[in-house]
């Protein structure tokens, strides 16, 4: 899922200070699963926003709502039902949701309430870790299912750097060296010889370095 976390409330209060009626808009997709922007978080943010604005002597009217998703046109169209009730939308979705609102509602002011952080999973309750970089050219079949692009601090493609110590990363000692983990996993599954293959210099053009990426599926377009 896309993992996000709410921005500091003072930053949110400042960025929306010029608006008197704010639609705090949650998303039931990824940000709901990672407890950053679902219905419960909308309720909390709305309360904090009212308190923060009252403290600044500029009370605000907050409308609370949550869409099924903010990354599909048909759900964004559902914002119509709050027309006339807000001056600005404060989206608790990931950056995709904020962009979709900006794309599809040309005259609406929209602000991000969360920092969109990474593609990850929940390692344990309340803890999320990055697992995928969305680089557009997956090599997980060569690395035992463990991603060196996302999980190696240097995104190395041909084994660990010289700084890996005791199976830990030299940059973040609390993180396992993913190349050690790749080695151990391939050895455990009898595929260690895969590590002898040299990965050539990588073409990063699929990773967004060449501008926004797009997928067109002719079998689905209408």
């Amino acid at each position: 899922m896309i993992v996000a976390e709410r921005k500091p409330i003072d930053e949110i209060v400042r960025m929306t200070m010029s608006h008197d009626r704010i639609l705090v808009l949650g998303c039931r997709g990824c940000v709901s699963v990672c407890s950053a922007g679902g219905e419960r978080e909308v309720e909390i943010l709305a309360s904090l926003l009212r308190l923060g604005r009252r403290k600044e002597g500029k009370p605000v009217t907050v409308v609370e709502a949550t869409l099924v998703r903010q990354c599909d046109r048909e759900y964004i169209d559902g914002i119509d039902k709050w027309d006339g009730q807000y001056d600005a939308i404060l989206s608790m979705a990931c950056g995709v949701g904020v962009n979709f609102i900006a794309n599809l509602r040309p005259t609406d002011m929209v602000y991000p309430a969360v920092n969109t952080s990474f593609f990850g999973g929940s390692a344990e309750q309340g803890v999320w870790s990055e697992q995928c970089a969305g680089c557009g050219n997956c090599i997980l079949h060569l690395t035992g299912g463990l991603c060196p692009v996302a999980r190696c601090a240097k995104s190395l493609m041909n084994g660990p750097c010289g700084g890996s110590q005791g199976g830990r990363c030299e940059i973040h000692p609390e993180v396992p060296c993913i190349w050690q983990a790749i080695h151990d996993r391939l050895e455990r599954t009898g595929r260690k010889e895969q590590l002898l293959a040299i990965s050539p210099i990588r073409d990063w053009s699929s990773a967004g370095h060449g501008g926004p990426r797009k997928i067109v599926r002719d079998d689905l377009t209408v």
């Binding site: 419960r40 309720e43 909390i44 309360s47 904090l48 009212r50 308190l51």
Partner: peptide, 11 residues
């Protein structure tokens, strides 16, 4: 107790 319940007390 939810965070929102405690915030409501302040509100």
């Amino acid at each position: 107790l939810q965070v929102s319940s405690l915030l409501k007390a302040f509100e």
